[in-house]
């Protein structure tokens, strides 16, 4: 464990918590893409499938973190599609999730480190996570704005994988560890946030709201 990965995981936890708090406190999921949250839930379930296969006691923080990610993302989807369904902005959340899921699944079958079920599910989860934020960014471009709290959520969500890139550099250098598929997908994922990062740094930090076109 290194500082980059620690802060990356904390940033990821913060993003999940910020979004949950936003929806719970405002009792509304306006401006939130339900499809992105569904895709994240699929990512966690397919990546941490080992939790369901051979359940071992919660003997370490990693198992607890995996359970937190899965339960929090499923609960978020429940809030969006059931509890606060009336506030779900389905018209603007119109990016076709199939256009993300099918290529990720196909690519996972073509490019992977081992052709076995668990490994392909893990690879699918990594590829899907790289593009899972697109429906959310698409929704913001359709509505033309993002609530400040949603911007904080996106900043934390984007920072998590950006910090993981630093973690991978650290591990390559000091532990001579490399996970090529995760690194390539993580770089693609972080690049997708660049435009948002620019808007966040130049606007939200100064107390302004993100309004598109910038």
């Amino acid at each position: 464990m290194n500082i980059f990965r620690l802060f990356g995981d904390l940033s990821h936890l913060a993003a999940i918590a910020i979004l949950l708090l936003k929806i719970w406190k405002t009792r509304s999921c306006a401006g939130v893409s339900g499809k992105t949250q569904l895709l994240f839930a699929v990512c966690f379930i397919t990546r941490y499938i080992d939790l369901f296969l051979h359940f071992v006691s919660l003997y370490n923080t990693e198992k607890v973190m995996k359970l937190i990610y899965i339960s929090a993302s499923v609960f978020t989807c429940y809030l969006i599609f059931f509890k606060f369904k009336a506030t779900y902005d389905g018209n603007h959340d119109s990016m076709r999730a199939e256009f993300l899921i099918v290529p990720a699944a196909g690519l996972a079958c073509l490019i992977n480190t081992k052709f076995d079920a668990i490994e392909i599910l893990w690879t699918f989860s990594i590829y899907l996570e790289a593009v899972a934020i697109l429906p959310q960014l698409f929704l913001i471009s359709k509505t033309g704005e993002a609530e400040t709290i949603t911007s904080h959520y996106l900043f934390a969500q984007g920072s998590y994988r950006a910090l993981y890139i630093l973690n991978w550099i650290y591990r390559y250098h000091y532990e001579s560890h490399v996970d090529t598929i995760a690194i390539v997908a993580g770089v693609v994922q972080t690049i997708l946030y660049c435009d948002f990062f620019y808007l966040y740094i130049t606007k939200v930090v100064k107390g302004q709201k993100i309004v598109l076109p910038a």
């Binding site: 990965r5 990693e62 990610y69 480190t113 973690n167 390559y172 490399v178």
Partner: peptide, 10 residues
């Protein structure tokens, strides 16, 4: 050379 060991990250 760096080794491609298992996936030990979240």
């Amino acid at each position: 050379p760096p080794t491609q060991s298992g996936h030990d990250e979240l």
